[in-house]
Structures are given as structure tokens and as C-alpha cells.
Design a binder for these strands. Structure first.
Lengths: 233, 233
DNA sequence: CCTACCGATCGGTAGG
DNA sequence: CCTACCGATCGGTAGG
């Protein structure tokens, strides 16, 4: 009844990281717990009572903050799909070589997920078929298309080896996802070398001349700086 | 009561592929349906009634073939973890360069999953934490360790770039997994070029000199031939 | 945020 | 392989 609408402003991660978890708004506490438990036992394997118990409240009290279990999952999609998808789109339009844009997009994806205050593993791919998630499914596919488009440009420019853009998308996505999964998103605050590890590995696999990874990395620094300037936080 | 024990001989995939699905043993029909539905909606998102309905039988009849829902999942693990894990172990011991063994292992993994008559996407990583799956969890970790060991040998021999073996394992696993996931395991009978695509991509990312992928691929042909000779089917 | 409670569905059993 | 049925748990509501 008094549940706030799902489609609203997202509190940014900087604000949350600055506070101890007990002082987060209750809604974000619920999101954190749900993300953590969905990541461990899956959406269907986690009950609303599990989430409430972890927060020390009764199960029906959740419904003062979210109108349904699905609404929690939709909120997670905003972080797991919405933010990175919009970022990829922004980066795809920067005036820079495709290899630099790819490096930048991959690196920022991994950094974002590893430094996020909530667990970003909560959205296994089988879940996106859930009834009610059609909108997020479309956004995910749009994200895929953006990555393929950058790869295609790189192949046409001769920067990248002549590779199937959809295969490249799968390879990029797979490496990103497994690294994020293993790194237990939401626990660490510093991403370490993994974002560069992933972006460099992927570029070595895609570049027509793999010895030019260093070049792409340097060009990507400008893309990343531009993105950060345009998106503080 | 009359359910056959879970730990038994696995019918091999050649036998199943030779028959239309209606003539498969009922137990394998159940496995096929479960694999397909687990892959689409997850283990917890699939009910035993869903599986029975798809087979045109009543839900309690399943229990004549499997003692529990978990036992079906355990059987799937034998295909998704047992077979590839044992294969990786066999290949790791072949007398060949590490890069050739890596190429062979990756290529055979992808080929196996894409040509399997059942859907190999049914085992998302969050599921392996399920109570009762501890044995398979251990085997999965042993598989991980085997891959890391091959990478370590390759790095020490100077074949591979000085890369963290665990990161290499994550990269390999991630690409394999995403390609298998997208390819809707169990539908196709011919794997096409994907097994080579994946193995080559991964090797370009790992080799000290990425231009030597062709060399590794040729050396891997011998490893693959040896494996197939020792494991008909 | 609570207690009390709802109908639906879950995995599994009994007995034939 | 069936019908009949079990206790447990599910997401969600009513009403305060």
C-alpha cells in the first residue's frame, strides 16, 4: 500500500558505500539481502521469509517496501542490466577506436560489479525469462546488440580479427560473468587488477594484432576519463 | 521403491542419439525433460509436476524412476561435471605441450555439450551449493584444479604468458559456459565451428606468442585423437 | 512494523 | 503407472 513505486530514482552506490549497512534505507537493505541470497540459492530457491529473517523483521513487513517479490528482482535488474547497458551505449558513441571502446566498456563493467555494495551475481541468465521481466529482457538484448555493434566496427576497420560479432559478445560476456561470479560481488570494495585482466584478455583474443593491447589500453584511458567526467559517481 | 539406484552406469550419448526420444528409456526421458526445464526456469523454478506433465504422466509416477527430485539433479551432474571432469583429468596427463592439452580440453568440452542429446545448461553455478550436492561440488573443484594445473605448467614452460592460473580458469570456463548457454544445448547435433572458435579464442588470450595458435591447434589434434581412441564414444 | 491468516502449490507417500 | 492424499511452505492480504 505504502510501497514506493519500483520505477524511480536509484540511490547511487557512492551514497550507500559511505554508510554502514545498518543505516541504509530499509528498501536498500532488502535489496542487499535479496541480491545476496538470490546469488547463492537462486530467486526461486529464496523465500521472502528467508530475506525477512536475515533482516530481523517479519515476512509480511517486506510488503511495506516492495509490492511483490518480483518487484525486488526488477530493482536488481536496474543495477545489473540498466546501469551497465546505458554505460555501454554511451561508450559506444564516443569518438575513439573500437578496440579502445571495447576495452573501456569491459573494464568499467567488471570494476562496477566488483565494487558494487550489493551482490551482482543475483541475476543468472535463466532468470531473465521470468514472466514479468520482459522489459529487462529487451534491455539485455539491446546491451548485447551494442557490444556486437562495437565489435563489427572494429572488424570493419581492421583493428579486430575477422570474428563473428555474436561470438565475440559471448566470449566477452562469459569472461566478465565468471570473474564477477567468483569474486563474490558485494564483499570487496577494491576491484584490484581484475578489470584490467579481463579487458586485456578479451582484447588479446579479438585484436588482429594481439601485441597492440597496450595501445588499446592507453586509448581507452581517454574514453574512461570522458565517461567519468560525464557521469560523476 | 522400485527406483533404480542413482549411482550406476550411464547410458552413453551415442545410444540415445540413435533413437527417437519416444523410444528412450523412461528414466532418460525424465532426465531430458528435467534438463530442459531446469535450464529454462531453474531447478527451484521447475516442479516435479511440470516434468511429469511434459511426459504425459502423473507426478507421483516419476518416483518409480527417481527416488527424489534431487536424484534427477545428481544424475545431471554426472553428465555436466562427471564426464568433462574425468576427460580433463585424462587429457592433463597426456605427454604434449600444455597449450595443446588446453586447446584439446576446451574444444572437447564445447563439442560434448553442443552435441549432447540433453540440455547441458541445467546446472547454473549457484545450484552447486544445493544441500546434497557436496560430492559434485568437490568434483567440480577438482576439475577447476586440473585446468589450473595445465595452465601453470604452460606458464612455467614459457608457452603461456605469465597469467594467474585461477584467472585463466575463470576466463576459459566463462567463455565455454556462455557459448554453451546460448547454443541451447540438446537441440543441435552438429557443433559447427564453435568448439574451435572457443579453444582458439582462449589460446590467443593465454599464449605468450598469440601468433602460435595454429601450432597449438595442430599439436592438439594428436591429443584429441589419443583421447578418442582411448574412449570410444 | 506486527499478528493472524489465506489459497495455491510444493515434494513425497500409501496402496493398489 | 494410477488415484488419493499428506504436511510443509510458498507469496501475498487484512486489519491494526
Amino acid at each position: 500500500m505504502s510501497a514506493k513505486p519500483t520505477t524511480g530514482s536509484r540511490p547511487d552506490f557512492r551514497q550507500l558505500r559511505a554508510l554502514p549497512r545498518e543505516r541504509w534505507p530499509r528498501r536498500e537493505q532488502i535489496l542487499f539481502e535479496a541480491a545476496s541470497q538470490f546469488a547463492q540459492r537462486g530467486y526461486h530457491g529464496t523465500s521472502t521469509r528467508d530475506i525477512a529473517d536475515a533482516l530481523g523483521i517479519r515476512q509480511p513487513s517486506l510488503y511495506n517496501h516492495y509490492p511483490s517479490k518480483l518487484a525486488i528482482l526488477e530493482d536488481l535488474c536496474a543495477y545489473d542490466i540498466g546501469v551497465p547497458g546505458e554505460r555501454a551505449r554511451w561508450i559506444s558513441r564516443v569518438d575513439a577506436p573500437a578496440s579502445a571502446r571495447l576495452y573501456a566498456a569491459v573494464r568499467l563493467d567488471v570494476e562496477y560489479c566488483l565494487e558494487a555494495p550489493i551482490d551482482m551475481r543475483g541475476l543468472p541468465d535463466d532468470l531473465i525469462g521470468e514472466p514479468g521481466l520482459e522489459t529487462w529482457n529487451r534491455k539485455l538484448r539491446a546491451w548485447y546488440a551494442t557490444v556486437r555493434a562495437i565489435v563489427r566496427e572494429g572488424v570493419e576497420a581492421g583493428e579486430l580479427a575477422p570474428i563473428d560479432p555474436e561470438f565475440a559478445r559471448q566470449a566477452i560476456w562469459g569472461v566478465e560473468w565468471e570473474v564477477i561470479r567468483v569474486s563474490h560481488g558485494g564483499r570487496r570494495r577494491r576491484a584490484g587488477t581484475r578489470p584490467d585482466d579481463v579487458a586485456s584478455f578479451v582484447l588479446r583474443g579479438l585484436l588482429a594484432d594481439p601485441s597492440r593491447v597496450g595501445e588499446a589500453r592507453e586509448a581507452a584511458a581517454g574514453v574512461i576519463a570522458a565517461y567519468r567526467a560525464a557521469h560523476p559517481g
